[in-house]
Write a protein that binds this DNA or RNA. Structure first.
Lengths: 199, 199
DNA sequence: GTCTATACGTCGATAGAC
DNA sequence: GTCTATCGACGTATAGAC
């Protein structure tokens, strides 16, 4: 068969990441073969190695991109100068939901495929995750100090709140009974209550 | 090489499940080979097929056992006759933590390897999970009705609380700074607050 | 940039000896 | 109940033609 005409490297590179994200999320990193990805992208397996050193780098790049996007998105937000802990927490919750919900596959992979990273790659992703957690922890600590929040342990509360919010991705469906706006308000109430917020 | 002496079928069957649990949790179902399991158990790969029809059945059996144990443990508890929603919720939280924390591998597999089940097997596990969620949902609904709880949506609150509690498994370490008893109290506070409990 | 062809290892599962 | 040996398929990754 003749070689596929009209292919462009940039397009293939992008399709590789998109396809790998979907397939890894659906079937798992270990269960997806390079051949399968290539077939879906529309090239031969060998051609994939023009865009990634190996399968491991492919996984790492997906997770690394996701965490960078997340932290960049948070940093890039416009933030008022003086803002109360309670408002900070509200902004965090809304941001988290709005960022994570439309990225179901990426979020899924970022949690499920950590164990398939090499130790060095795992360390990088884990650090990014800790950076994100620190954002919430700082907010809770500030509120705890000035008396607006009341939790037994800010560290555990941080984990609990993030788990609560991220868990949303496991049940949310676009055609579900609740709109995104409603879900946002429901979770906001849950988080503020859990933090013992007294406005 | 002579065949291994002193082996007993019952012992091997048990070791198969234990070994598979550990390996699947550590490396993932798809990444673990039957040969690897056999090596760890101390038999040849072929011998495993005396105890399981195939790899898929092995995974399903592990998850099915876990869910059955969970529901049986809940059913088997002694429960006072009349009990307030707030006490029910407290009992649920303590039960969940005590049951899940010592079963890190089983819990991990039960969440991570759902996608590697055949559709029929997935359905069975999913039903068991829904049964468990219904326990919490009933408690929240009762409290919502009689005014002891105050959540915007009992369904979402159910998911959120279970996610919050189960998320504990991702960070808990035996040698950590918090004892099991302390963690139990911290999460109890978080859950009661999230539910808007007014004692 | 993409192709074909292939090296070389490992997979799940089975057959038959003991 | 466990072993050895093996089948046929599929895995990642590379070499070299075009």
């Amino acid at each position: 068969m003749a070689r596929k005409s009209g292919s462009s490297g940039i397009k293939t590179a992008k399709q590789l990441h998109e396809t790998a994200t979907v397939l890894f999320a659906k079937n798992g990193y270990a269960a997806v073969s390079m051949r399968q990805i290539a077939r879906e992208v529309g090239v031969q397996a060998g051609a994939l190695y023009l865009y990634t050193a190996d399968k491991q780098s492919l996984l790492f790049d997906l997770l690394d991109e996701h965490m960078k996007d997340l932290l960049d998105a948070w940093e890039g937000r416009t933030t008022p100068h003086e803002i109360t802990p309670i408002d900070q927490l509200e902004r965090f919750v809304r941001f988290h939901i709005r960022f994570h919900l439309p990225r179901a596959d990426e979020v899924f992979i970022s949690y499920m495929e950590l164990r398939n990273l090499t130790p060095e790659n795992f360390e990088v992703i884990q650090n990014a995750r800790r950076t994100y957690e620190a954002i919430l922890h700082d907010i809770l600590s500030a509120g705890q100090t000035d008396g607006t929040f009341k939790v037994s342990d800010t560290k555990v509360a941080t984990y609990a709140i993030i788990a609560m919010l991220t868990g949303m991705n496991t049940w949310y469906r676009d055609e579900g009974r609740l709109s995104l706006d409603m879900i946002e308000e429901i979770y906001l109430d849950l988080v503020l209550s859990a933090a013992g917020a007294t406005p």
